[in-house]
Design a protein around this nucleic acid. Sequence first.
DNA 1: AATCGATGGTTACTTTTGCAACTAATTTCG
DNA 2: CGAAATTAGTTGCAAAAGTAACCATCGATT
Lengths: 145, 145
Amino acid sequence: MMTKLALEHFLPYRLARIGTVVSQEFREIYGRDYDLTIPEWRVLATLGQFGEMGAKAIGRHSFMHKTKVSRAVRALEERRWLKRRESLEDRREEVLALTPQGLTAYENIVPSALAYEEKLLCSLGIHAQALLDALDALERVKKMN
Amino acid sequence: MMTKLALEHFLPYRLARIGTVVSQEFREIYGRDYDLTIPEWRVLATLGQFGEMGAKAIGRHSFMHKTKVSRAVRALEERRWLKRRESLEDRREEVLALTPQGLTAYENIVPSALAYEEKLLCSLGIHAQALLDALDALERVKKMN
DNA sequence: AATCGATGGTTACTTTTGCAACTAATTTCG
DNA sequence: CGAAATTAGTTGCAAAAGTAACCATCGATT
């Protein structure tokens, strides 16, 4: 006798699906006003959070491949939302930082981002905290911290 | 004063990340023996679960764009894992079904898929059931059922 | 200081994806 | 019945992503 697999109840599938649905939905928030891709948003968010940093560090923090970071950085640079400068200690590295315009955009997006998250958590009601705890556990298991 | 956003704690980001990490890790399971892409696996899984069905229905069930389904179907067909036949009621539709080879592959993959899921749930320990409940709630909210 | 391996970052090339336009068959409705 | 609107599925094209090769610099070792 063969064991059945119902795709719609299969955990890896469900995680992948909910992940893309939610992050696409969220993308519409910042895509409405500014036309940002997801990688661009992540670079913006990382720089907004930490200030100056190199592309490598951005990739490490936002879990993106270095080419993805490289392209997102260039796009943001062309938009004049960030500027590069050569690092003094290590001339391979480029230190990146948001320009005033970039910072303004960031500060405009953050409240709606948090509002979206809040709404999402609210809609989960009783399950909200459980989800956060489970995500902690999952990230710990997958060593994603 | 400005509200801070820490990307690593931001729910949409975390969901997207864990989704791709887990589903990529799972992909290695069936990628090891058979070299399947994720869309191909989903088509295989859907047909294995339901038997005969049209491409449209597969897309609806596995949440994939019709072009993605179309290409995955062709790839599986070239591998001789599925065959098409014209529907008698509606000659636009193509009824798809796994061949014996396709079914064998499916039946080989299912146990390791379930084992992987089991391992994942075990590693979550106390949080496992909470995660499943939270996913139910999330899917209900996003009307993904 | 000269060489060798590692590191930050970009770019060329290929694969994957999504959108829009298309074909062919079907339904709807005047 | 016959024209118009829908639907199943494919394909061409452009945007997005990953891989590997590459350049420049750095650090260590000799």
